[in-house]
């Protein structure tokens, strides 16, 4: 019985111990991913997207440390499960797709061997059954000659093929939820689209859900149902793609969208940089870059405020439903 499969993250905090001091990478992020949702997580590089994703899957490695928060999946708290309990969920109910397919695949074991290990991690199966399951999984991700891929090794695959193999492995047990960290950055544009079509296709089939980290707002616009904007380890705005892209309420989201020549491109040319994550600002982390910043912004951190229909913004001077903004951009 695979139940609802809802992911609930509350007040997640992750830090890294470095020689310079404690880097506060994730500072109280919370959100919910419901079945059928495809949540896009966007934000500049270094704003804690990957750290959030890893923390959810219990993959945080030293010097990283989860300082607090709750991760609940399908009604179970993952944060308290320990390695063994988590292991039974990962790869089975939650699939994780890495950023670099060649980094993820083992270079020394054959693809078949790796598939067999992944399959046997969650069910009993003979070597022959494993091969059948793996062949089917490879066909499902659009690989034409799965036998050859299965008998080969990672280095014999192209980037696109390797990422298909990773996706096939990560989803071989039909997980309810897929976590994907920039799954296509290593690939060229046409392959990127194919891969994203593929993943979202897998989800749409059976009311599953996905959390996808990306810096490509075009990807969010095309494939996601909801979007979470992160800044300096905090969620600053969340809503449906339509809400957030049409009427961004947070100044950072507005800057982010303005930095993209047209919805469909990558984020670039933002002024300034992230605040110091070691001496984390006590007020709004965006204050030193924000054109709307006032004294209150520097002094107190704006809470994430609900604005109806699952829409949330963390800003003291959030723009309301400013119709004019969307109009000015179109």
């Amino acid at each position: 019985m695979k139940a609802s499969g809802e992911l609930k993250v509350e007040d997640l905090r992750v830090s890294f111990q470095t020689a310079q001091g404690t880097v506060r990478a994730v500072n109280g992020v919370g959100f919910v991913v419901k079945p059928g949702d495809v949540l896009g997580v966007v934000g500049e590089s270094g704003c804690g997207k990957s750290a959030t994703l890893r923390a959810i899957a219990g993959l945080t490695q030293p010097p990283g440390h989860i300082d607090g928060g709750r991760v609940e999946f399908d009604g179970r708290e993952l944060t308290g499960l320990g390695r063994g309990g988590l292991r039974r969920i990962l790869g089975n109910e939650i699939g994780f797709i890495s950023q670099s397919p060649f980094g993820a695949l083992n270079p020394i074991l054959s693809i078949e061997r790796q598939f067999r290990n992944v399959i046997k991690a969650h069910r009993r199966a003979s070597a022959r059954e494993c091969r059948e399951i793996a062949l089917k999984a490879l066909r499902d991700v659009g690989i034409a000659g799965p036998e050859r891929v299965l008998d080969g090794y990672a280095h014999q695959l192209s980037g696109g093929m390797a990422q298909r193999v990773v996706i096939a492995m990560a989803t071989v047990h039909n997980p309810q939820l897929i976590l994907a960290d920039e799954p296509t950055t290593a690939l060229d544009v046409t392959v990127q689209r194919q891969i994203l079509d593929l993943i979202t296709g897998l989800i749409a089939e059976s009311n599953r859900s996905m959390l996808i980290v990306t810096h490509d707002l075009g990807v969010v616009a095309q494939y996601c149902t909801r979007v979470l904007v992160m800044y300096a380890g905090q969620a600053v705005e969340e809503g449906t793609v339509d809400q957030v892209f049409r009427t961004p309420q947070h100044p950072y989201t507005q800057a982010l969208l303005a930095a993209v020549p047209k919805v469909g491109g990558e984020i670039r040319g933002l002024q300034g940089g992230l605040p110091d994550l070691i001496n984390y600002p006590s007020g709004c982390p965006y204050a030193d870059r924000c054109p709307k910043a006032t004294e209150v912004c520097v002094e107190t951190r704006p809470p994430m405020v609900r604005a109806g229909q699952g829409r949330r913004t963390a800003c003291h001077h959030a723009a309301g439903e400013v119709a004019g903004y969307a109009a000015a951009r179109s």
């Binding site: 490695q61 990962l90 790869g91 994780f96 993820a104 290990n117 992944v118």
Partner: peptide, 18 residues
Amino acid sequence: MATPQVEFARACGLPERQ
């Protein structure tokens, strides 16, 4: 242990010994 390879192996739910 810090490579994406090991991370992916864990993310697939492989037992620690593997």
